[in-house]
Nucleic acid binder design. Structure first.
Lengths: 224, 224
DNA sequence: CGAAAGTTTGAGTTGCTTCAACCGCGGTGG
DNA sequence: CCACCGCGGTTGAAGCAACTCAAACTTTCG
């Protein structure tokens, strides 16, 4: 077993009342996932929520099980410090998406009962959760905006531009296949757009990794 | 002035502590909107959140101001009892979408300061807000799923099917232009799909209103 | 009644997907 | 050590679902 998890350092819990934190700690279990392993799948019951301690997980909608072709739609990728799964918890529904580790990952699972209790006792925790959910809501709104109002070129450009600004470049650590899925395009289209950007010296491609060269230029592409 | 607004009857506030409720009531102002009037527009600062007392408002993303063609993407429609705008409040960002009345509408505006105070004092209110946000998050996830994984026919079918099941058929009260926008298709495409469904006796069209005839059949169309 | 907005229908266009072949690399086992 | 496999990525060619443009019709509302 590696180092113990410093509970109070996780963004969601920082500053939360000590007693409340103790109760949460008792209801929490760390889970280790290998790359490719599923944390949960759509339809499974929800036992609690998760925060990422280390690694990377992908939340994605699988296509209908009936259909032959197996396409999926990536929704979010969560890196260290991120909290997810609370939405399902608060609504008390089965999981709506698949959650798969994109690398060797450690997540912390907190049981729903503990969370309900903690929310009642510490308003700060509520505030954190409300902020977290609101942020995710806005992310999804931007995604819908992108997919509805922009073409493939613009979507890729604004995505890259966002990644350039964001401190957490969780997405860029994923395969291009996953990024394409998150942008709602095929890997082929993504590749074509990237090679075009590469030719225009906006990005640099190296062994499947993406480096951003010209944020300005990307912003122009996104706006056009 | 029409009848006074029964504060304690609004879904968000039902069961909330009396004192807290009083504080909120003092910080609340009713707003009346004519059809087509904007409650707020993207980019404007956020002063608080809203609940619909009567009528219908549409939340929609405008296309970039620079571009010539003026397309927009409808996100949600809120009817009586619905609460919205909390997300922007919790994140303390400018509005991300336009909000426009779809009919003569009364909304209640509650200032952000009052809400912060109330959240700290009554955990029940937090729980309500968390549930509300979670529900909206799931709605958006389903929308992304629809737009990414289904074609126009399937989207329309599953949309109609959802409306059949939902108690609140707020969307069906809108123009077809708005529905099309919410589905991420053009009014033309929507019209074509609807006339096809009409020919197949799945729906009935009458003076711009939509009546659902065969929910079963719609479900089949959605799945295919 | 007339203007403005919403809806329908037709015809032509296109951006993205699909299908398919190929390349390069990393892991695995003989 | 090297041959083989498999997966991720690249590139080309062809097809199609949905969009755009345009024109007629209908409904709404001042």
């Amino acid at each position: 077993m590696a180092e113990p998890i410093i509970f109070a350092r996780l963004p969601l819990f920082r500053g939360v009342d000590g007693d409340v934190l103790d109760a949460l700690r008792e209801a929490a279990t760390p889970l280790r996932l290998r790359k490719g392993e599923f944390l949960f799948r759509r339809g499974e019951p929800c036992q609690g929520f998760y925060t990422v301690v280390e690694g990377l997980v992908k939340l994605a909608l699988p296509s209908a099980p009936g259909s032959e072709r197996t396409v999926e739609r990536a929704i979010e990728v969560f890196g260290p410090g991120a909290t997810f799964g609370e939405d399902v918890l608060f609504l008390n529904t089965p999981q709506v998406a698949d959650c798969q580790a994109q690398a060797r990952t450690t997540v912390l699972h907190v049981s729903k009962f503990a969370l309900w209790g903690a929310v009642e006792r510490d308003p700060l925790l509520s505030a954190r959760l409300l902020r977290n959910l609101s942020g995710r809501l806005h992310t999804l709104m931007r995604d819908i905006e992108a997919v509805s109002l922009q073409n493939a070129l613009q979507r890729v450009a604004s995505f890259l531009q966002e990644q350039a600004q964001a401190s957490r470049r969780t997405w860029l650590a994923c395969t291009q296949r996953v990024i394409a899925s998150k942008l709602g395009i095929t890997p082929e289209t993504f590749s074509r757009v990237m090679s075009r950007f590469s030719a225009e010296k906006l990005v640099k491609l190296e062994r499947g990794k993406i480096f951003l060269l010209d944020t300005e230029g990307l912003a122009r592409q996104a706006a056009a």
